[in-house]
Simulated scan of single mutants.
Amino acid sequence: MRVVLLTLLSMLAFAANSLLCRLALKSELIDPTSFAAIRLASGAAMLVVVVRVRRVSPVAHGTWAAAFWLFAYAAAFSWAYARLPAGVGALLLFGAVQATMIGAGLWRGERLALAQWFGLLLAMGGLVVLLLPGWSAPPPGSAMLMLAAGVGWGAYSLHGRGARDAGAATAGNFLRSVPFALLLVAASASQWSITPSGLALALCSGAITSGLGYIVWYTVLPHLRASAAATVQLSVPLLAALGGTLLLGEDWTQRLGWAALAITGGIAMVVAMPQRVPSVKAAAPARTFRK
C-alpha cells in the first residue's frame, strides 16, 4: 500500500507541473523564461537540501550534457504552455518522450515484437490525429515546442540511465542547469513579467512538484518492475487532462479523447512486453576429449 500511495503521489506531482505552468502562463502571471528559470533554481535548491541531508555532494554527481537537456526541456515546456491546454501539452510531451526513448533503443539494436510495432504505429497515429489541422487542433508552433520538450526530456532520461544514485544525479543536473537558465533570462530581460502569484506558482512547480516529486519517484522506483514503472507513467497525461478540465475550465474534445486513447494504449503495448534483442547464432559447444 505504501508503494501504491507513493507512486500515485509522484504521478500527481508530475501532472501538477503541467497544471501549474499552464495556470501561471494562461493568466499571464509570469513570463515563460522566468517561470522555467525559477522552476529549475528552486528545484535545484530543494534537491540539494535533500541529498545534503544524506551527506552526499550533488556536485560529484550528474553531468553537464544531462543538465543541458534538462534545461532545454524546461525552457521549451514553459514556452509551449503559453498557448497549449494542459492536457494536450502533457499528451504531446509524453508521446515525444516515449518516442525518443523507444527510437534510441531501436538505434542501439533492440528489436520489437509484431504487437509492439503495432502499438508504436498506433501511438504515432494518435500524435498525428492530435496535430491535424482543424477546429480543435493545438497551435502548431506551441505543439512543436512541446514535442521538442519531450525530445529534451527523453534525451535527459537516456543520459541518466546509468546513474548509480538517481537522486544525487538529479540534484547535480538541476544545479548545473541553473547557469543555462540564467543566460536565457539575461538574454530576454526586456520580456520579464513576474507577479507574486506567478512567482509562487513557479516556486511550487520547482521545489514541490519537481524537486520533491522526483525524490518520491526515485524512492518508489526500486520497488517497481521496469515495465510497471513505464506503464504507470501513462496516467500522467490523463491526470493532466482531467485536471485541466476540472480546475482550469479547459474543454475535453473528441479529438483529445481519441488521441489520448491511441497514444497511451499504443505505448502501453510497447512497454508492457519484454524487448527482443538481435538473435545471435549460438556457438557450437566445445568438444571434450578423453586422454
Rank of each mutant, 00 (worst) to 15 (best):
L224T: 11
Y218W: 05
G211Q: 07
R176Y: 02
P237I: 00
L183Y: 06
V232I: 09
A186Y: 02
G211V: 10
S227N: 05
G211W: 02
A207H: 03
A241D: 01
L199G: 07
V220P: 05
F180D: 05
T195E: 13
V236T: 02
A229T: 07
V178K: 10
G213Q: 12
L238V: 06
F174A: 06
A202K: 07
L182Y: 02
A186P: 02
S188K: 08
S210K: 12
A228N: 13
A189C: 11
S235H: 07
L212W: 00
P179R: 05
S197P: 12
A241R: 03
S177T: 11
I215W: 12
Y214Q: 06
A226G: 15
S193D: 03
G213C: 15
P179M: 13
I208L: 13
A186L: 08
Q191W: 08
L203N: 03
A207G: 03
L238Q: 04
Y218V: 11
S193Q: 12
F174G: 03
S210A: 15
P179K: 11
L224F: 04
H223F: 14
A207F: 08
V232S: 09
V220G: 04
T209M: 10
V178D: 12
I208F: 09
L234T: 13
A229Y: 12
F180I: 12
F180L: 13
P222M: 07
S210D: 05
G213K: 14
V178G: 07
L183F: 11
R176E: 05
P179V: 07
G172M: 14
I194G: 04
Y218G: 09
A181R: 02
A228V: 15
A187M: 14
S190W: 14
G198D: 00
Y214G: 04
T219P: 08
A187I: 08
Q233P: 10
P222I: 15
L238H: 04
S227M: 02
V236F: 00
L234N: 12
I194H: 02
S193M: 11
S188R: 06
A187S: 09
P222G: 15
L238M: 09
G211Y: 07
S210M: 13
V232T: 13
G198R: 07
F180C: 15
G213T: 14
F180M: 10
A230D: 10
G211A: 14
